[in-house]
Design a protein around this nucleic acid. Structure first.
Length: 825
RNA sequence: GCCCUGGUGGCGGAAUCGGUAGACGCGUCGGACUUAAAAUCCGGUUGGAGUUAAAUCCAGUGCCAGUUCAAGUCUGGCCCAGGGCACCA
C-alpha cells in the first residue's frame, strides 16, 4: 500500500472497475427485502452545482447503508430534461434544444460518475426522449378518458417574458417562478388537469405521511386551503336574480348590512341600475388595469361603488344594498360576499369608509353589545338574531345553516383554495399534447397506437412572439382519427411538471416499451422508501406527484396511494451566509473540488458540518479539514498495513486493559454510527464518530512500539471495522484499502458491522456526584455496584464529606450506574 | 393576521429517558520537529472571579415564570429569526 493518498488516481481506477463489473446493478428479483432510495432528478442545466452534490451524496450514502444491511436497493437516476432553458439557449445560439440538452446530460453524467454515486444506469430515464414522453402522452390520454384532463376558457396566468401560460403553483408573489417577470391575467382556452377532484384526499392523506416533515405538510395543507362554511342565496329586489354568497361565518347573517360582488362578477351588469352604470363601468375598467400585485396588496385602502340594486336578507326581511369592490375575488367561492362589518375586519374598514351601517350580532358580554372601534371576530354569544339569541356562535353556525336548508335558500359548503392544474404551455421543448382538432368532430385524442406524437424537427427557433413549434410545416396539419378529414394538431406542449409527476414510477420498469410500467414491478418497488430533494418542490412537484399516484391508482394502474413514504428535504448550500448563485459570484465548482481533493473529500465535507435538513455553509477551510482527515485515515491504514489481517477476528477470553478499551471503543462506534444513520440520517455526527474512532486508534497505537498477536488482532478488527463504517461515505478510499489489505471482492458488498451490546459500553462507569443538583465530584466505579453501594461511595468521598459537613442530608437520589444526588439543607 | 421550523461558545454544530452543557470539527493561541517553511504531532480555548501556577468558586443553552432532588430537554406566557399561506369572505 502506498504511503501517500492520491485520490485522483484511486477514484478513476475504482469507478472504471465498478462500471465494468456492474457492482451497482439492481436485480428485479431477489430474496432480500426491497428498498427504494431516490434523489429528485436534475434539470440538465449544464453543470452540477453543490446543491446537487449534497442531494445525491445524501441519497447515495443511504442507499449504500441499506445495501450493506441486507436490502435489495433501487437507486436510479435520470433527467428532467424538457423545459424552457433548453429552448432559450437554442434561440440564443441558433442551436437545437435537443443538442444542447444531450450535451449537458453527457457532461453531468460524467460528473455524477466522478462523484462515485452508486446508480444503476440501466434504469436511466430522460423525459425528453420519445421512449419516455410516449408514456407521458399515454398517461395524459388516460386522464382525458377519465375526465381528469379537459380544455376550458379561463382567466389564466400569462408570462410575457416566457411567452406562455403558467400554473398557479408557478406564480410566486405575482411573478413568474422562472424569470421573475410580472404575471398578467389573460382569458384563454387552455388544458387543465382536475387536481381539485382530489383536494380532500390530498389533504386528508397528509396525516398518513409520518415520514414527512411538518413544514412540507403544512405548506401543502395551506395550498389546498380547505375551509368549511355555507352558501346562502339572496333574492334581488329590483329583478328576479339571486346572488349566492359563500361564508365561513353563517352565525353572523343577521348582521349583514350590504353585499359585495367582485368587479368581474358574471351578473354584475344585470345588477347595476342605469343611474349607476357609468360609475360601475369606470370602477371595473380601473380594476382590470391593475396588476395582481397591486390588487392583492392587503394594505391598500378599500374602494368600491354601489350598484344601485338591493337584496333581501331572508332571515330578517331587511333590505340592504349591493356594491362592487375589488376586495371580493371573482375566482373564490361564488365571487360575492355578504358583508358583516361588525364581525369582519375588511367589511368593517369598508363600512367605515362609505358610512354603511354596522350591526352587532355577536358579543362576548351576554348583557349586550357596545359601540365597536374594530371588528369583533372572536367567539361569543348571539344577539339581535331573533330565535338564535343567546346561542354560542359555534352552535349557531350549524343551526342557522340548517334553517337556510329547511327554507330552501342555503346549504353547507366546503371550499378549497386549490385550483385545477393548468398544464398546456405555448412552447416547443415539451411533450406534445396528443390531441387533434377537427372542424367536424371537435377535439379528438390521438389514438394510442399512434403515440408518440413526435416533436417536429423542422422548426425555426428564431421566431418571436409565438411558439417555435407553430413554424413546422409537417406538424400542424394532420388527419382526424375519427372522420379521416383534415385536422390540426394541438401545438401546445405539456408543463414539465407533468413529466416529473411519474418518473419515479418508470424507474421500476424503465425499458418497458409496451406500457409506462408493468403493474407487478411498480407495486414491488414503490412507494419510494426514501425521497431526498430540495424544499422548493414542497408544493409543486410533490403535490402533483401525489395527485398522479392517486389518479393512476383509481385507474387501476397501480395499488398504492402515496408515492413517497419518507421525505427528506435537504437544506440549501450557502457560502458566506447566502445561497450560492452565479449572480452573487459565490459558487464553488464541483469539478475543482474533485480535481484538487477528490470526490471522497467532497462527499465527506458536504455531509460533515450540518444535519441534512439544515442549511449548509460552505467553507474552504472545512474542505481542507476533510482532506486532511482522509490523509490521516490513509496514513493510519498504510503505516499499519503489515499487521492487518482481514480474516474474522476471534476474541480472547481476557484482553489486556488497553486492548479491551479499544475493542469497546470500536463497538461503541459501530453502535453510534448505525443509530445516527438510522435516526434521521444524522451524517454530521456519523462523521464526528469516524474522527473519534480514528483518534482512538492513533492514541492506542502511539503507546505501542512492538505488537504481539493480540495487539495485531485488535488493530485489525479496529481498522477493518473503520473501513466498513466509512465505506458508504469515502467510497473510493475504503475500496482501495480493502483491496490492498487483501479483502475479497468489493467493500461495497460486505455486511455492515454489528455491535455487541456488552462491549458497546465502558468497562467501568464514572459516577457523577451532585449536591442539590450541581456537579461536585466524579468517581470511577464498578458497573456492578448496587444502589446502596453507590450511595455509600458518594457519601464517603473526601470532597463530599467536606462539602456536606455541618449540613443536614435531607434526601439522596441514586440513578443506577450513573449518578448520586445529595440534597442538603 | 393564521400556520410551520428554529434560537446552545468566535463559527458549524453535539447532548436516547429530564441526570457531567459545549462531543467532533473550523478558527485561534502556545509548544514539538525543521536552518526555515510546508506537512505532521502534542496542548489550551464559554464568560467572570481567583492564583506565581494550580486548586477552587460563581454565572451560563433567546426572555419571564412554573414543575422537579435535578431542566438545553417538560408546562405556561412572551421575544426574535427563517419559511409557507393570505383582502380566500
Amino acid at each position: 500500500m502506498k504511503d501517500a493518498y492520491f485520490p485522483q488516481e484511486i477514484e478513476k481506477k475504482w469507478q472504471k472497475i465498478w462500471e465494468e463489473k456492474g457492482v451497482f446493478k439492481t436485480p428485479d428479483t431477489s430474496d432480500k427485502p426491497k428498498y427504494y432510495a431516490l434523489s429528485m432528478f436534475p434539470y440538465p442545466s449544464g453543470k452540477l452545482h453543490m446543491g446537487h452534490v449534497r442531494n445525491y451524496t445524501i441519497t447515495d450514502v443511504i442507499a449504500r447503508f441499506k445495501k450493506m444491511n441486507g436490502y435489495n436497493v433501487l437507486h436510479p437516476m435520470g433527467w428532467d430534461s424538457f423545459g424552457l432553458p433548453a429552448e432559450n439557449a437554442a434561440m440564443k445560439h441558433g442551436a437545437n434544444p435537443e443538442t444542447w440538452t444531450d450535451e449537458n446530460i453527457a457532461y453531468m453524467t460524467k460528473q455524477l460518475k466522478m462523484l462515485g454515486l452508486s446508480y444503476d444506469w440501466d434504469r436511466e430515464v430522460t423525459t425528453c426522449k420519445p421512449d419516455y414522453y410516449k408514456w407521458t402522452q399515454w398517461l395524459f390520454l388516460q386522464l382525458y378518458k377519465k375526465g381528469l384532463a379537459y380544455k376550458k376558457e379561463a382567466a389564466v396566468n400569462w408570462c410575457e417574458e416566457c411567452g406562455t401560460v403558467l400554473a398557479n403553483e408557478q406564480v410566486i408573489d405575482g411573478k413568474c417562478w422562472r424569470c421573475d417577470h410580472i404575471v398578467e391575467k389573460k382569458y384563454l382556452s387552455q388544458w387543465f388537469l382536475k387536481i381539485t377532484d382530489y383536494a380532500e384526499v390530498l389533504l386528508e392523506d397528509l396525516d398518513k405521511l409520518a415520514g414527512w416533515g411538518e413544514n412540507v405538510k403544512t405548506m401543502q395543507a395551506n395550498w389546498i386551503g380547505k375551509s368549511e362554511g355555507a352558501i346562502f342565496k339572496f333574492k334581488v329586489v329590483e329583478n328576479d336574480l339571486e346572488v349566492p354568497v359563500y361564508t365561513t361565518r353563517p352565525d353572523t347573517v343577521h348582521g349583514i348590512t350590504y353585499l359585495v360582488v367582485a368587479p368581474e362578477y358574471k351578473d354584475i351588469e344585470k345588477l347595476t341600475t342605469p343611474e349607476n352604470k357609468e360609475a360601475v363601468e369606470a370602477y371595473r375598467a380601473n380594476a382590470r388595469k391593475m396588476t395582481e400585485i397591486e390588487r392583492l396588496s392587503t394594505d391598500r385602502v378599500k374602494t368600491g361603488v354601489p350598484l344601485g340594486t338591493h337584496c333581501i336578507n331572508p332571515f330578517t326581511g331587511e333590505k340592504f344594498p349591493l356594491w362592487t369592490a375589488d376586495y371580493a375575488l371573482a375566482e373564490y367561492g361564488t365571487g360575492a360576499v355578504m358583508a358583516v362589518p361588525a364581525h369582519d375586519t375588511r367589511d368593517f374598514d369598508f363600512a367605515k369608509k362609505y358610512n354603511l351601517p354596522i350591526k352587532v350580532v355577536i358579543t362576548p358580554h351576554p348583557q349586550g353589545a357596545r359601540e365597536l372601534t374594530e371588528a369583533y371576530t372572536e367567539p361569543g354569544v348571539l344577539v339581535n338574531s331573533n330565535e338564535f339569541d343567546g346561542m354560542s356562535n359555534e352552535e349557531a353556525k350549524k343551526a342557522i345553516t340548517q334553517k337556510a336548508i329547511d327554507k330552501g335558500f342555503g346549504e353547507f359548503k366546503t371550499q378549497y383554495r386549490l385550483r385545477d392544474w393548468l398544464v398546456s404551455r405555448q412552447r416547443y421543448w415539451g411533450a406534445p399534447i396528443p390531441v387533434v382538432y377537427c372542424d367536424k368532430c371537435g377535439i379528438q385524442p390521438v389514438p394510442e397506437e399512434q403515440l408518440p406524437v413526435l416533436l417536429p424537427k423542422d422548426v425555426d427557433f428564431s421566431v418571436v412572439g409565438k411558439s417555435p413549434i407553430t413554424t413546422s410545416k409537417t406538424f400542424v396539419n394532420t388527419t382526424c382519427p375519427c372522420c379521416g378529414g383534415p385536422a390540426r394538431r394541438e401545438t401546445d406542449t405539456m408543463d414539465t411538471f407533468v413529466c416529473s409527476s411519474w418518473y419515479y414510477l418508470r424507474y421500476s420498469d424503465a425499458r418497458n416499451d409496451k406500457m409506462p410500467f408493468a403493474k407487478d414491478k411498480v407495486n414491488k418497488w414503490l412507494p419510494v422508501d426514501q425521497y431526498v430533494g430540495g424544499i422548493e418542490h414542497a408544493i409543486l412537484h410533490l403535490l402533483y406527484s401525489r395527485f398522479f399516484t392517486k389518479a393512476l391508482r383509481d385507474m387501476g394502474l397501480l395499488d398504492f396511494d402515496e408515492p413517497f413514504k419518507n421525505l427528506l428535504t435537504q437544506g440549501m448550500v450557502l457560502k458566506d451566509g447566502s445561497k450560492m448563485s452565479k449572480s452573487k459570484g459565490n459558487t464553488v465548482d464541483p469539478d475543482e473540488i474533485f480535481e484538487n481533493y477528490g470526490a471522497d473529500t467532497a462527499r465527506l465535507f458536504i455531509l460533515s458540518d450540518s444535519p441534512p435538513a439544515r442549511d449548509f455553509d460552505w467553507s474552504d477551510a472545512g474542505v481542507e479539514g476533510c482532506y486532511k482527515f482522509l490523509n490521516r485515515v490513509w496514513r493510519l491504514i498504510s503505516s499499519n498495513a503489515d499487521y492487518i489481517n482481514v480474516s474474522p477476528f476471534t476474541l480472547h477470553s481476557s484482553l489486556k486493559k488497553d486492548n479491551d478499551n479499544l475493542l469497546r471503543l470500536v463497538h461503541i462506534a459501530i453502535k453510534g454510527i448505525t443509530n445516527d444513520i438510522s435516526n434521521d440520517f444524522q451524517f454530521n455526527t456519523v462523521i464526528s464518530k469516524y474522527r473519534e474512532l480514528v483518534n482512538a486508534i492513533y492514541d492506542w497505537r502511539g503507546k505501542k512500539s512492538e505488537l504481539d498477536d493480540e495487539d495485531k488482532a485488535i488493530l485489525s478488527f479496529a481498522i477493518i471495522t473503520l473501513i466498513k463504517l466509512m465505506s458508504p461515505v469515502a467510497v473510493h478510499l475504503t475500496e482501495e484499502a480493502w483491496h490492498e489489505l487483501g479483502g475479497e471482492g468489493s467493500i461495497h458488498d460486505v455486511e455492515w458491522p454489528k455491535w455487541d451490546e456488552n462491549l458497546a459500553k465502558a468497562s467501568s462507569i464514572t459516577l457523577v456526584v451532585q449536591i442539590n443538583g450541581k456537579l461536585k465530584d466524579k468517581i470511577e466505579a464498578d458497573e456492578a455496584l448496587s444502589e446502596d453501594e453507590l450511595k455509600a461511595l458518594a457519601l464517603n468521598s473526601e470532597k463530599i464529606k467536606e462539602l456536606t459537613a455541618g449540613k443536614t442530608i435531607v434526601k439522596t437520589i441514586v440513578v443506577p450506574k450513573k449518578l448520586v444526588n445529595i440534597v442538603v439543607k
